[in-house]
């Protein structure tokens, strides 16, 4: 007689010792392989690297006579760290004891939120980095004067008709604004491409699970 799956299940587990728990030792010190813990580790390591790197660059920039660049980089990166540290805290608050729908929704919401926030940050950060770079060299000391002022003087000698706005050639302002605009546009996109490589599969999978669960909720 054909056995039902219920009987296969019951009888299968009754007559053998297949449910013996595997040996677990040193569980305390095991590195968690869970995706949330992996995110936490990755996030934390990135933030530590950014803090250390920006501090080092701040010091180096002082010795390279470009402290303005170092300071602007430092402030921008600290804002990035602060925002992402808050995101990390929220990730830690996801309760795994919720039902699957709430749990997956909370996790999916966290990922999407952090992507949206970091994409927006990238749209600002790349132009700010460029501006920091330009200002860093503009205010670099060049024999008692700023390198930028010296450059403007040189330009005025060669092109006396150059139109200036607050002492800066209009053409230079237009080029800088254009570059910043392009960096803002591509900054967000570059971040999304990066993300697609790292999280693409996770996001697609989460979407699949959520869609399936939502069909069971309606």
């Amino acid at each position: 007689m054909e056995r039902s799956i219920e009987n296969i299940w019951k009888e299968g587990f009754q007559k053998n010792d297949d449910l013996t728990a595997p040996e677990i030792d040193n569980l305390y010190n095991q590195k968690s392989i869970h995706i949330i813990d992996k995110f936490k580790r990755m996030f934390r390591n990135n933030l530590i690297a950014i803090v250390v790197g920006s501090f080092l660059f701040l010091i180096i920039s002082y010795f390279l006579d470009i402290p303005v660049m170092g300071a602007l980089f430092f402030v921008t990166l600290m804002v990035h760290v602060f925002i992402n540290k808050n995101l990390l805290k929220k990730l830690g608050r996801i309760d795994q004891g919720q039902n699957s729908y709430q749990y997956l929704k909370a996790f999916s919401h966290w990922i999407k939120n952090q992507i949206a926030i970091n994409k927006r940050l990238s749209e600002f950060m790349y132009p700010i980095f460029f501006l920091s770079f330009v200002l860093g060299f503009w205010f670099k000391d060049a024999e008692g004067t700023y390198l930028g002022d010296r450059l403007v003087d040189e330009i005025l000698i060669r092109f006396p008709d150059t139109y200036l706005i607050v002492g800066i050639p209009l053409m230079a302002i237009i080029i800088a604004v254009l570059i910043m605009g392009l960096l803002a546009y591509f900054g967000g996109r570059i971040y999304r491409w990066d993300l697609n490589i790292i999280y693409g599969r996770v996001l697609r999978k989460l979407d699949e699970l959520m869609t399936d669960l939502e069909s069971l909720r309606s």
């Binding site: 392989i33 869970h34 995706i35 949330i36 795994q96 919720q98 699957s100 749990y103 996790f107």
Partner: peptide
Amino acid sequence: TWVYRISLNVCLTLLKKKKNNSQHFVS
């Protein structure tokens, strides 16, 4: 019930090992 929930939630979001040692989200 709590154990069921956590077990299930962990299984649904765990990264499965691949033979070539790289890892991917369970698909």
